[in-house]
Design a protein around this nucleic acid. Structure first.
Lengths: 192, 192
DNA sequence: TGTACATCAGTGAACGCGCGTTCACTGATGTAC
DNA sequence: TGTACATCAGTGAACGCGCGTTCACTGATGTAC
């Protein structure tokens, strides 16, 4: 059946979108192409008229998640207190329980690293955040401080998602959020 | 064939040891029981006379990795500058490239969390490190500072292992190590 | 001390299942005349 | 404007493969007499 002009492009985007959700939520290895296509009311055979392999979809899905995060961060960093907005967002209860729509660094990039299948997109995502944080800090040691902030945010989220007790997870997020804000307010003052 | 008295216990430990290495290095989902048993010159059928399921082995392997880390950290924290020794060890080039023998938090615990199969052992591992760091810091806000340190260490290692460019990975480790030491030396002074 | 037997750690074939990937095919639609 | 045809996104069966798990079996050794 031949479809209207941009029908295939739409399907292409739908596959990438669904994949970027599932890869982040369930893991890349644990996400099957058959269930993924079925969720979009498609059959699995058609997958290969869109992508030449699962690996290609993984890269496209990571890029889609990166673009999503870029858009979200553009909003956050144009607020009055950009760094606080970013920290609050990254360590929110929503981000804790919604890896499917969250930052791909602790999910997709992490799994790609584990398998030794690194992607330049990971470096781009990290680089984009570092640049935004550095600009928000505005002082000379911005680059190093930005790396500290990102490491702490990612680590806190990874740990909060890993621990068994929900109360401990929430405590990690709360403590790190408060202490990180305190540190960075100092930095912002020092930079002025 | 009947074996000498503690032969089975030895095999049991060998399986757990090999699993704790493979789960951390390759991931739990990507580690097959068949190749694992073959690597120990055993056949896969015998696995179930040792463990009732792969999940049971996962928990035992995580506990083994935790015990290994405990032993290593006991050495580190009995040195003159315990916190620096721990930070240096955690952010070492060796730890970056040797997840198989390293901290299970960014590897096994992270994957268990991703699958929603949390373990109390994760909380125990984190708790043990927090306690040691808190003791090393020795001041009133030790608990919160300890959480900040652990989050930053885990995040730095996760990011360093995720990025594509080795130079960026090394830079993350270097910057975070230096800045974390600076922060904590202040803390140690403040606590005295 | 020598023999018969019970034990049980480990064997290896087999189970159903889902994986990524291939491929001959379908059939509604856009295009050509 | 009406008809014949080419296109090609999507179909669905099939491929080999490795997974976790089961189970009837083996055979060297410890134990009992």
């Amino acid at each position: 059946m031949r479809y209207s002009q941009d029908h295939k492009a739409q399907t292409h985007r739908r596959i990438i979108k669904e994949a970027s959700v599932r890869f982040r939520r369930d893991g890349i290895g644990a996400t099957g192409l058959q269930p993924l296509m079925k969720a979009l009311d498609l059959t699995h055979g058609g997958f290969y008229s869109h992508f030449k392999s699962k690996d290609e979809l993984v890269e496209k899905a990571l890029q889609a998640a990166a673009a999503e995060l870029d858009a979200h961060c553009e909003t956050l960093f144009s607020q009055e207190r950009p760094l606080e907005a970013f920290i609050d967002s990254y360590l929110s209860a929503w981000h804790l329980t919604s890896p499917a729509e969250g930052c791909p660094l602790p999910t997709m990039s992490s799994e790609l690293g584990l398998r030794g299948q690194h992607s330049a997109t990971t470096d781009a995502v990290l680089g984009a955040r570092l640049k935004q944080i550095k600009t928000a800090l505005g002082d000379g040691r911005g680059e190093e401080q930005a790396l500290m902030v990102m490491s702490t945010l990612v680590g806190a989220l990874v740990l909060a998602r890993s621990v068994e007790k929900p109360a401990l997870a929430q405590r990690i997020l709360d403590v790190v959020r408060d202490n990180l804000k305190a540190l960075n307010l100092e930095g912002e003052r020092a930079g002025q």
